[in-house]
């Protein structure tokens, strides 16, 4: 017990100990900002992996660690698309995941946002044209926000998400 308290006291607060990201590379459209304004205080995200290499997932996971602590901005991860305000999709959409992605999108209640995370989700990256890949996310469902990078740094993801939610409803 004392060991745990001592450990927490000696470590202190680590939140924010990272290099801040720059302004988002792909600006957010005003209509999307307007839609996102609804989620200003609380933003539930469902992550859907449609064929990424797992690096984008790891950076999403890093977003939830004490250093980035996305929860402090009201961002949290929902366990089901039915509880989500936004879908974050990573990876080129593979032949096998196409149906699952469309299902998840259908199950997400309106109004909803779709965020394409990483180069693969935006333009298939180096998997473009392959027999097993059916195309970028926007070929299957409408995409509102794009966060490029291979993979994007957590700081950049955080920056893009806060930029998105600056608008007024």
């Amino acid at each position: 017990m004392f060991r745990i308290i001592k450990k927490s006291l000696t470590i202190g607060v680590v939140t924010g100990q990272y290099q801040k990201g720059g302004t988002p590379a792909v600006p957010v459209v005003p209509e999307v900002k307007k839609k996102a304004g609804l989620f200003k205080r609380s933003f539930a995200i469902r992550e859907v992996d449609t064929g990424s290499c797992n690096a984008c997932e790891m950076e999403m996971n890093a977003l939830m660690n004490p250093v980035y602590d996305a929860e402090q901005f009201g961002i949290h991860i929902a366990a089901s698309p039915r509880h989500a305000d936004a879908l974050i999709v990573t990876g080129p959409v593979t032949v096998n995941m196409e149906r699952a992605l469309k299902d998840a999108h259908k199950q997400t209640p309106d109004p909803k946002l779709v965020i394409a995370l990483g180069d693969c989700a935006i333009h298939c990256g180096m998997f473009k044209g392959c027999y097993a890949v059916t195309g970028p996310v926007e070929r299957h469902i409408p995409v509102d926000v794009r966060i490029p990078g291979c993979p994007p740094r957590p700081a950049d993801i955080l920056e893009a998400l806060s930029e998105l939610r600056k608008g007024r409803p």
Binding site: T50, G51, S52, C53, G91, M126, Y131
Partner: peptide
């Protein structure tokens, strides 16, 4: 579910250029 055709994509590349693909087999 996530089959991306990596081994087939390797066959479209030269030995030197295929390295970025190997880096993305498992991130």
């Amino acid at each position: 579910w996530k089959h991306r055709g990596v081994e087939k994509l390797f066959e479209q590349q030269t030995l030197i250029d295929a390295l970025p693909l190997a880096e993305r087999v498992s991130g």
